[in-house]
């Protein structure tokens, strides 16, 4: 194996990004995934287990893992942590108020995980199309995002149904990841 081989491998590796989509159940994770993959979103049932999608994006190859968010499953999330470059946290902005505490707790719990320590964090404040939806600023406040210092983060208000701002969020997370050239492996 010589330098030319290393470069070839590295080039392929640098072009592959692994994203993990998490969030409470019913937040819209699967809908977002299907939406950005250009699939039909009219009949999505709750995720039993997990989904993996591979898609090309701006010259990168994204491997996106979407895991169910029911309470009973959450403790299995860490099955999926390895080599995660970016974490996409999806919030139902029109959720019942009592669920935001849960949401905050789960998110901050994840951020202490060693194996997610290098990952960029994108928060999708989803379902902005719904009348009662909180703004992304309000969500940031509720989730206490400003205290996050361990990860690069960004919050984007979006709607999986209209597609609004999904691209903006994806753009940010991919760009942020691609800027990292040191590998924390």
């Amino acid at each position: 194996m010589g330098l030319l081989t290393v470069l070839k491998k590295l080039k392929q590796k640098e072009k592959e990004i692994r994203l993990l989509i998490l969030g409470l159940d019913n937040a819209g994770k699967t809908t977002i995934l299907k939406r950005i993959n250009g699939e039909d979103i009219s009949s999505i049932s709750p995720t039993l287990g997990f989904n993996i999608k591979t898609l090309a994006y701006n010259g990168y190859k994204l491997n996106i893992w979407d895991v169910g968010g029911q309470k009973s499953i959450r403790s299995y999330w860490r099955n999926y942590f390895e080599q995660t470059d970016g974490l996409v946290w999806v919030v139902d902005s029109a959720d019942r108020p009592d669920r935001f505490a849960d949401c905050k707790l789960e998110l901050h719990g994840l951020l202490t995980e060693e194996r997610l320590s290098g990952a960029s964090l994108l928060i999708f404040a989803n379902k902005q199309d719904l009348p009662g939806a909180l703004s992304s600023e309000e969500i940031a406040e509720l989730l206490d995002l400003k205290t996050i210092q361990t990860h690069h983060w960004q919050i984007v208000g979006c709607s999986a149904v209209t597609g609004e701002n999904l691209l903006k969020g994806m753009d940010w997370v991919v760009t942020d990841i691609s800027k990292r050239i040191y590998m924390l492996d």
Binding site: K34, N37, T47, N51, T54, L55, A56, Y57, G163, L167
Partner: peptide
């Protein structure tokens, strides 16, 4: 709904 297809992001 198992896995997805690799496709160019439409947007």
């Amino acid at each position: 709904m198992l896995t997805g297809k690799a496709s160019e992001l439409p947007m």
